[in-house]
Simulated scan of single mutants.
Amino acid sequence: MTIQANAIAVESPLEDLEETVMELIINAGESRSCAMQALYAAKAGKWDEVDGLLAESTAAAKRAHVVQTQLIGADEGTGKVPVNLIMVHAQDHIMTSMLARELIEELIEVHRKLQAKD
């Protein structure tokens, strides 16, 4: 199984598990970071930047999700993928970045409506 995330091809998510998990963490972090930048841009009324940053956030989240899905597939529900602290850490990053992005999108809409009233 070949996965491609951030233009890095890995023959199997289990082949270099540490590198694969780092890809999860990097992409989840990028997703959250871009979403936060979009919120700061919205607060400043820089609406031309907001949509681009949200699109970057979504793209990074999709890259993380692709890797995560392939790890789940490689595991086949049989425990083939070892669960260690770094794997748990990666999952935490994915989940918190997803939640942050969802909440940030809502906050951006609030800022959009408030600024439209002014």
Rank of each mutant, 00 (worst) to 15 (best):
G73C: 09
H65C: 01
L17W: 02
I86A: 08
I72E: 11
I72Q: 12
L107W: 09
V50D: 05
D92T: 13
H93D: 04
V88W: 02
E49G: 02
D51W: 07
I104C: 08
D16W: 02
W47A: 10
P13E: 06
I26M: 12
A74Y: 11
T20M: 04
I8P: 00
E106N: 12
H111G: 01
K62Q: 15
G79L: 06
M36Y: 11
V67K: 02
I8F: 04
V50L: 02
G29V: 03
L53G: 01
H65D: 14
L53A: 02
I26L: 13
I94S: 02
I86K: 12
V66D: 08
P82H: 05
A5E: 01
D118C: 03
L14S: 00
S12R: 12
C34A: 14
H89D: 05
I108T: 06
Q115M: 15
L39Y: 10
A7E: 11
A61Q: 15
A41W: 14
N27A: 09
A41S: 15
A90I: 01
E106M: 12
A60M: 06
S97F: 02
C34P: 00
E15G: 09
E106C: 07
A74Q: 11
Q91G: 08
E19P: 00
V10D: 06
A42G: 10
V21F: 01
V50I: 05
K117N: 14
K46T: 12
A35F: 08
A38V: 06
G79V: 08
L107V: 00
V50A: 00
A42K: 08
Q68L: 15
C34I: 00
E18C: 03
L99C: 03
T2V: 12
S33P: 00
R63E: 13
L17E: 04
V21H: 01
T69P: 04
H65M: 10
L54N: 03
Y40V: 12
A90H: 02
L71D: 06
G79C: 09
D48P: 00
A44V: 05
L14D: 01
E56A: 05
I3R: 08
E102W: 03
L85Y: 05
S97N: 04
V50M: 04
N6L: 11
E19T: 14
E56C: 04
V66M: 07
M36N: 14
L54M: 08
E15M: 13
E30R: 12
P13Y: 02
R112N: 08
M95Y: 07
A44W: 03
V110K: 09
T20A: 07
A64C: 14
E23F: 08
I72R: 13
Q37R: 10
T96F: 10
G52H: 05
D75R: 10
H65T: 14
Q37T: 04
A42N: 05
K43F: 01
A74M: 06
D51K: 13
E106F: 07
A60Y: 07
G79W: 04
L17C: 03
V66A: 10
Q68H: 15
K46P: 09
A9K: 13
S31D: 03
W47T: 08
V83N: 06
A38K: 01
G29L: 05
E49R: 15
L24F: 02
N27R: 10
M95K: 03
Q4L: 13
M87P: 00
V81Y: 06
T78H: 08
L54Y: 01
K117F: 09
E106A: 13
G79Y: 10
M95P: 04
T78L: 14
